[in-house]
Amino acid sequence: MLNIIRHKIKEQFRGVYLYLIFLSEFAWMYIALFPSMQKVDIEAMMAQMPKEFVGFLGEGGAAAYNTIEGFLSGEFFSFFFVLLIIFYVASVAGSIIAGGIEKRTIDFDLSQPISRTRKLLSETAVAMFYSFFLVFATNILIKILCEIYSVSIGSKGLFLFSIVAVLFVWAIYGIAIFLSSIFKSKIAVVGVTIFFTLGSYIFYALSLAVEKIKDYGKYSIYNFYDPQKILSKAEININQCLILLAIFIIGLLLSLVIFNKKDV
């Protein structure tokens, strides 16, 4: 098991490093932009926009953009940040079973004295470790950049948000690894996972903006991931965290059952 973990950590290091650079550059751009954004009368600007569009911004509305927490949530954390890390975990999940069968790399790996369960858990451990690393490393860099640009951001809120973001990414990994156990192609796994995440995001955003579907927003996985709330209030909802963890565990267990029975 350690052999696989060591190998996968080495194999994915370069890719993860590039993801981190990409995320950091975007975070840097937004933080550097924030002081000049404060000079703009955002509320007046938003007043010109359609009501539905402003509804997209959620609880704090346009006023939330006056704080770094609200600005980063709206511009970075809600979508781009999480989507990029989800792309990484979906690619990893897609490679483990569906991609391995598709490319036939799995034959030689499974001819080694290691059970399918151990193989899947080892590679999952690496995906968990690197997604944890990407979330926390990006947020530590954000804290440092905020210090450099003299922008005040709450450490506790950032730390709590990192925990929820990790759980959110793991939950999506749970879905992706389940898809990997039933699909026959890595691209299908990545595509459906991204489509699901995007769809959930759009549906959740619409539920905030459109009165008719307001009550249905709770069915989106984004209901359990609200960066603005966590960052501004510096508190998390334990039940929501447990639901995200449960999605991850159920997805992983289902994939283990299917993978162990599957012809590869």
Binding site: E11, T105, S111
Partner: peptide
């Protein structure tokens, strides 16, 4: 007993797919 068996097996696949990097 697949894991136990594979400790004592050497396998050469028909098509070779090894970690390219």
């Amino acid at each position: 007993d697949t894991v136990q068996i594979k400790k004592q097996i050497g396998y050469l696949p028909g098509e070779i797919f090894l970690p390219e990097s």
